[in-house]
Amino acid sequence: MNDYVNALQIILDIDKDIRILHNRLAPLVVDWPGQLFVGKALKHTGQKFIKPTPIRYQIDGINSFIPILGPLHVSLNSREHVILIYHSFFEKLFHFVFGSRNVFAKKPKPWRINLLLDLAYNGWYKIRDIINLKFGCTCKDTEYCMMVDLLDNIIPSTLDIYSTLFHSSSYDEYIESIFRIWTFVLCWKQHNYNKAPLAFLSDVFYWEDIKHPFAKVIKLFLMNFNDYFVENMHSKIRVHTSTNSSTDNIIKQAYLIVKDETQTNPKGHACNLPPDNNNCPQHVKALPNNLFYTTKSNYNYL
């Protein structure tokens, strides 16, 4: 948690001069550790120190930040969990498609995970009506029910939540899919992601209950709360650095990557940077400032 607080403190120190965050909200689209530790820092706002560390922090203004679950993290982690939980099924599918001589890893790479999930769902889509006509809705066989749940419920949810629902700003369907995925990982007893979606839903429903303006913002501009840019930048940094790289070397590499991107894409269309204000969509420019007031979330789960 110390690293998160220190990183936010750097932003707050810069903001003392420019005052952009004054009486405004800065959403942080993060993974579960970001949700957890930033949420804890918010919960302890006003206290002299953050337990269990005795190090004192100046965290005035930290309540301008609000952690939000990153949709890309949800998609990638849920897809990986599906492969790991149903590994035996996907191993047979992999050998059927690519041959028995090829080795199916215990933890496949993301591109292979996406390929297998897409193959499984498209194959099921072609035979679904025939299977339902043959067995109907009354079949109680455990293996049959498990396979139908996997092919007709779990896989579509993991495939659609980011690429389709999030990018189309289908808010209600997105929230429903978040809840579905939470029920999946809860049944699988997976660490962390049996809490992250629930924490996000708790915040969203809390904002709706108190009729906070941010509930309207996230509903109207859902696709703008995207963690792709940060994750893409992290991937590029990992390619250009090693596990033995020093902190200064990582910072230099990140600076060079950003500099190269901005030089090749001066209008701000680099894939690791959001568009600049002159090129952003009109509906983003029209976002009313009076919706951005400092808010608080329900952090009783921390």
Rank of each mutant, 00 (worst) to 15 (best):
I59T: 07
D60M: 05
D60H: 02
I62A: 01
N63P: 00
N63A: 07
F65E: 01
I66A: 05
P67Y: 01
L69V: 01
L69Y: 00
G70N: 01
G70Y: 00
P71K: 01
S78E: 02
R79C: 04
E80A: 07
V82Q: 00
H87S: 05
H87F: 07
S88D: 15
K92H: 13
H95T: 11
F96P: 05
V97A: 06
V97F: 04
V97Q: 12
N102G: 08
N102F: 12
N102H: 12
V103Y: 11
V103A: 09
V103L: 13
F104V: 10
A105D: 15
K109G: 07
K109M: 11
P110G: 06
P110H: 02
W111N: 12
W111M: 10
W111Q: 14
I113T: 03
L115Y: 03
L116R: 02
D118L: 14
D118E: 14
L119G: 01
L119S: 06
L119F: 07
N122K: 14
W124E: 04
Y125M: 10
K126F: 05
K126R: 13
N132C: 11
N132H: 10
L133T: 13
F135Q: 09
C139Q: 11
K140I: 10
D141E: 09
T142G: 08
C145T: 11
M147T: 11
D149K: 15
D149T: 14
D149H: 14
L150D: 01
L151S: 03
D152T: 04
N153Q: 09
I154M: 11
I155M: 00
P156C: 03
S157Q: 02
S157H: 01
T158Y: 00
L159T: 09
I161D: 00
S163E: 09
S163W: 05
T164G: 02
F166Q: 02
S168P: 06
S168A: 08
S169I: 00
S170N: 15
S170W: 02
S170R: 07
Y171R: 02
Y171G: 06
D172S: 14
Y174I: 04
E176Q: 14
I178C: 06
F179V: 08
F179K: 15
F179Y: 15
F184G: 08
V185I: 11
V185P: 03
V185C: 13
V185F: 08
L186F: 13
L186N: 15
C187R: 15
W188T: 10
W188Q: 11
N192T: 07
N192Y: 12
N192P: 04
Y193G: 03
N194T: 11
K195F: 07
P197F: 01
L201P: 02
D203Y: 01
